[in-house]
Structures are given as structure tokens and as C-alpha cells.
Design a protein around this nucleic acid. Structure first.
Lengths: 246, 246
DNA sequence: GTCAAGAAGATTGTTGACAATAATACAAAC
DNA sequence: GTTTGTATTATTGTCAACAATCTTCTTGAC
């Protein structure tokens, strides 16, 4: 199914979701980082299913490297919350319960609140508005299009990246990036219906106004609500799925 | 100065600040974790100064292990934010600017807010109050004692650990633990005067009331204020220090 | 048929050596 | 005296082999 994939030399083409979401795209990636990016892609896309074990030797052979860099890559993925590593039992893809997913969304809600407050209260917010506005308009246009789920998600990710970078708070960037990676598949679920997308687009429009007005309180409130809406929508879909498969 | 320190076999005695703050004390620590704990201690205590390089070979020789576990230990410390690792340039102790410290405090403020709201709104909060109350009373008694700074800090750390564990939110535990490690030295600065300790103790008393009443909004507000107070006090001390040394 | 004990196999943890790269010291030119 | 280029050294990155541990399969007893 998967082509044998030599990583070593030039790998600029590998779509690096992890770095993309984190907002930090270094010019040259180390070997462990490249391996982590490839594995991350497979986990987020579902090619590796939740609970599945990832064996060092297997990965090492596939990428034609030794186990050392693979080990480090797995630790990076653990940091991102994509795998858990048990002593002497190796790594396996995380399989969070609904309640754990909710917990992650709770943290995202708070930190998105902080982020959007910081942006709204920043002196440079005026420069950011022209960047956000066209995207948010596009968002509203895309919301009603039934098949445009992926495009909608793309725009949302771009908006989040813009806002996160605008704070200049590196640590916040890192944490939010990590949490985004862990929840992206659920966010996708939550935005699958036009109705939910319209609700989401409206939230973004209100956020834009709050930022333009420099209203930090409102920006924080909307940001929190936005994530909580997303959380509830995802939870509903997960419940529906569970009923279907049962 | 430092005695040669074999880690290998039995090392339960090593005071493990990192695990202590994280609230997670595993029964058996892996070799990299033990090394990380020892190094963490030195960084937090100031034995390793900010900006100082930590070389793998040196550490490996001191602990009589190979470089592999040391490498992993350094990655763990990077995750905790205690060192930064540059490609092919190794690890050095982080040397955050005042503004970066402030950023970390901002994140802590938000997540402490979430934590204390969750506790206040939890059905099991009644069981927690009897655990918190005696500590908070002790806090008020210790506040005025001019020389009891360390004891005061100890109680605050214990209280934070109790609250963090009470949420049951593992991810929140991990993030807050990591942030606590990074800010503990500044928290210590901020609580060095009896006046500030009285202010702090009063905040804790109000938080206890909010938790007992199940008032999540108030609990969140107080928690945020508490961290922000701490942040401002630390910043003031850092400014004063900078003036003195200049 | 079920469970327990033990052996065989698979997998992670650790080590020491080698390769690649960055930091440093020194020398020569301006 | 300063700067630039070069050679040396120091340090990290990677590898393959070995040790320790866990999993699984088989065998035997009840």
C-alpha cells in the first residue's frame, strides 16, 4: 500500500501537518523531526488507527534509518499527545475517551480566550484586521456549500495560525499547536454540517469586530464560546457514531 | 564540589522536584527520568546558571552512563522548558526574558482559572474542602512570619497539587506541572515579603469560600487574579534586581 | 476444558564506536 | 590592530550490537 519511503536527503515535499499547525516551519528539519512528521500525518489521517502499536524496528526499516532517530521521533509524538509510551512496552497511538477529548477542548477554550484577548488588546491589531477580514468573508461564503468541508477547515486553520502568531507568545503558540494537532480530527467532525459552519462563521465575524474595537473581554468570551461549540458538536457526532456502530 | 553520583541502582532518595510539581510520582523511574530529575534540581536551584551549556559527554561521565539516556533526559528537560536544544549545538539552560516569564504567568493564570472553576463546579468538591482548609489556615499563620518564606512556598505548592489532582484532567495536570516548574523560582521571589504573603493568603481564603459555595465564576476570577498578583510581584522584584546590579 | 508454569521469541533499553558538523584557535594579509 | 581564511578540536548525530524485559505460545496438571 505505502511506497517504500527513503527520507534521508530532500523532503521538502512532505506536507508537514505538525509544523503547519504549530505555526513553526523550520528551514531544515532534523531526521527525527522528519520521521515524526511522517508518522504524525499517518496518525492524524487515520492510516494508523487508535490503540495501534508502533514498533521502532519496523519504522526504522521502512525509513531506512537506525532505531535511534525513530526513538526520538516517538518521543516528539508523545509530546504532541499523538502516542503514549509505556516503559518497555513501546509506543501506541493514543485512543482518548470522549471525556479526555472534552478535557482537551476545555484547555483549548481557555487558551484561545487568552490568545484572542491578547490580540484584541494589542497595539498592532489594526495591521492584523486586513489579513483576517478576507478570510472570514470567504468563510461565510464557504459555509453553505455542502461539500466544502475540507476547504472550510483549511481557512479556519489559517485563521488560527494568524491569530496565534500575532500574539508573539511562543509558549502559547507551542501549547495551542500541540492541542490543535490532537483535536483536528474532532474539529473536522464538528464542522461537517452547513448549519454548524454557519454558526461558526458567525462567531468568527463577531470575533473580528471585537478585535477591531479592541474589546478584549468580548474577544475572550467569543473565543471560548467558539471552542465550546466546536467541542459540543464533535461530542454529538461521536455519540451518533457510537450508536451506529453498536 | 559535587560528589560523584552513581545513579544506576537505587535512587528513591533523590528529591524529585519535577515529579513533585507535576503531581505524578511513578513507582519506578526510568534512567533518563532519574537523570532529568537530578539535572532539573540543579537548574531550578540555580546550581546551573541560565544560559549555561550542558554537554552530553560531561553529564554521562558524571552519572556513569552512556550518552543515550542523557540525550533523552535533555529532551525531557526541553519539554519542561528548563533547557533549549539547538540542532548540533546541544542544550543550554533557558534564560527567559522578563517578557517571556510574564507570558508563562499569563498562561498559568488562564489554566489555574480553568482548574479552580472545574474544582468549584465538581460534585466531589465537598470532600476536598476539609483537605484544603487546614493548609489555608496554616498559610495565614505563616504569612506574617518574616523568615518562613520557604515554608509558605511549600504549603502553596501542596495546595496547588491538591487542586490540580482534584480536576482529574490529566492533560491539564501535565501542562500546569510543566509551567509550575518553569516559574517556581519567580513565584519564590514574588512571595518574599510578609505583605505579599498576606495578600496571597487572603486570596486563598476567598478561593476556598468560592469552592465551598460551588461558585465557579468566582473561583475562576480569584485564581486568575492570584497568578497575576504573583506575576506582578515577581516582575517588580526582577526590576529591582536589575537596577541594583546595573 | 480451563488454568498455571515455563520456555521461546519479540521488543525495548543501553552501550560504545564512527560520522558529520559546529566552535575555537591560529596564522596570514591588509 | 583588525579581519579573514584555515586547521584543529570539541560536540552532537547516527549506527549496529548487546542486555534486559515483556509477550506469547506451548505444555502439563487438575
Amino acid at each position: 500500500m505505502m511506497a517504500t519511503t527513503r527520507i534521508a536527503s530532500n523532503t521538502t515535499q512532505a506536507a508537514d501537518l505538525l509544523a503547519q499547525l504549530s505555526g513553526t516551519a523550520p528551514l531544515t528539519q532534523s531526521l527525527p523531526e522528519q520521521i515524526a512528521a511522517r508518522l504524525s500525518e499517518r496518525i492524524v489521517s487515520g492510516a494508523y488507527s487508535p490503540g495501534q502499536r508502533i514498533m521502532e524496528q519496523t519504522v526504522a526499516e521502512e525509513f531506512e534509518v537506525s532505531r535511534g532517530p525513530v526513538r526520538e521521533a516517538l518521543r516528539l509524538l508523545e509530546k504532541e499527545g499523538l502516542v503514549i509510551i509505556n516503559a518497555r512496552r513501546g509506543a501506541q497511538v493514543t485512543n482518548p475517551t470522549i471525556s479526555e477529548v472534552n478535557e482537551i477542548f476545555d484547555i483549548r477554550a481557555m487558551l484561545n480566550g487568552l490568545r484572542d484577548r491578547l490580540v484584541a488588546e494589542s497595539p498592532q491589531r489594526a495591521q492584523l484586521v486586513p489579513l483576517l477580514e478576507p478570510e472570514i468573508i470567504k468563510l461565510a461564503q464557504t459555509a453553505d456549500n455542502p461539500g466544502a468541508g475540507d476547504e472550510y477547515i483549511e481557512i479556519v486553520l489559517r485563521l488560527n495560525r494568524l491569530l496565534t502568531q500575532a500574539t508573539g507568545n511562543r509558549r502559547l503558540q507551542a501549547i495551542l499547536g500541540s492541542l490543535a494537532v490532537q483535536t483536528v480530527r474532532y474539529t473536522r467532525l464538528g464542522l461537517s454540517t452547513p448549519q454548524r459552519r454557519r454558526q461558526s462563521a458567525q462567531n468568527w465575524q463577531r470575533l473580528l469586530r471585537a478585535i477591531r474595537d479592541g474589546d478584549g473581554d468580548t474577544a475572550e468570551r467569543i473565543a471560548r464560546q467558539r471552542v465550546i461549540d466546536s467541542r459540543d458538536a464533535a461530542a454529538e457526532h461521536l455519540r451518533a457514531q457510537a450508536v451506529n456502530t453498536a
